[in-house]
């Protein structure tokens, strides 16, 4: 047999631990997926650079919170402000010219942006890995024989708060309404006096801020802060797809589902099965229900 299967265990505490670990991982996926969803929903761009954005956020968190040793809240504020500025830069500098270009050209340009960020981070921060962040409470408590870290609960809370915030923003604010209008039909929106340019800029800024939040949170749970953390961007794809790329709430559900599945695959089958299982789940969801569990259907006109 080419592929070796691990042992299945029926020990409830092990499974509980896997479930908790999966939910924690899922919360992180949800943060990342939320970034994808924000951009895809409004601008129809699949942002393959989101992992790098997140890495940028983690490194900036390192700079502002550890190296500069700013007060936590001030540091986070500065971090998010800088990320927001980067988001505007991405839109006004690059993505603005790409409106109306082919789908794959835009995917490729996000890959180009990813490459630039990766290279610049290497140049300015060097390849040495840094210790992970330790600004949030580090302890843990036991429940039914399984350990739960405080950090994971905080991450979960932050994600839920973000989703709620965006939900309210899209549903009840004027700008949110305009963003949804542009997502629906850019030309009609422009004809109504909505400036698509402004909406897109806001979208990128919001996605960057989410990446900042994600970097800050992920910086607390990753093994170490180095260039490998960009991989979280790709690993969160199944979560975004399973939840539906156009659904904010879907990203959190998809994140949790994929996180738990991955963690169980990890625990029962072995680490190497983690990604293939997650991507297989994504694959099945794509074939059965391409718009994900909660995504909206787009009709195509011939």
């Amino acid at each position: 047999m080419l592929l070796a299967f691990g042992n299945f265990t029926a020990d409830p505490s092990v499974n509980l631990q896997l479930l908790i670990g999966g939910l924690a991982l899922g919360a992180i996926y949800a943060v990342v997926a939320l970034g994808f969803v924000l951009v895809y929903k409004s601008t129809d761009v699949l942002n393959l650079a989101h992992g790098e954005f997140l890495m940028l956020g983690a490194y900036f968190a390192l700079t502002f919170l550890i190296s500069e040793n700013l007060n936590f809240f001030l540091g986070v504020f500065v971090l998010l402000l800088v990320m927001l500025a980067f988001g505007l830069l991405v839109h006004y500098g690059i993505m603005r010219r790409m409106v109306g270009q082919g789908f794959f050209a835009i995917v490729l340009i996000t890959l180009g942006i990813a490459t630039i960020i990766r290279a610049l981070l290497l140049i300015f921060y060097g390849p040495t890995e840094r210790a992970r962040l330790d600004l949030l409470p580090q302890g843990s408590f036991e429940i039914g024989g399984a350990t739960v870290r405080y950090v994971d609960i905080i991450i979960f809370g932050v994600v839920a708060a973000c989703v709620l915030l965006f939900f309210v923003f899209f549903k009840y604010t004027r700008l949110g309404l305009h963003m949804r209008a542009v997502a629906d039909d850019i030309e009609a929106a422009a004809a109504m006096g909505i400036d698509p340019d402004k909406v897109y800029a806001m979208t990128w800024a919001a996605a960057m801020v989410m990446a900042g939040v994600g970097g800050l949170l992920f910086g607390h749970v990753t093994g170490a802060i180095d260039r490998s953390i960009e991989a979280i961007g790709l690993r969160a794809f199944p979560a975004a797809v399973v939840g539906g790329l156009t659904s904010l709430g879907g990203s959190i559900v998809g994140g949790l589902v994929v996180g738990v599945i991955e963690q169980f695959a990890n625990g029962h089958l072995g680490t190497k099965w983690r990604e293939p299982v997650a991507f297989s789940v994504m694959f099945v969801v794509l074939l059965v229900r391409p718009t994900g569990l909660w995504g909206r259907k787009d009709l195509e006109r011939v």
Binding site: R174, L177, H178, R180, A181, A183, D184, D185, A188, A189, M192, G193, I194, R296
Partner: peptide, 16 residues
């Protein structure tokens, strides 16, 4: 129209 928005939201978009 914006197909995924409600009628009211569509009307409000006109006042953008």
């Amino acid at each position: 129209l914006f197909p995924n928005l409600t009628v009211k939201e569509n009307l409000l978009c006109g006042a953008a």
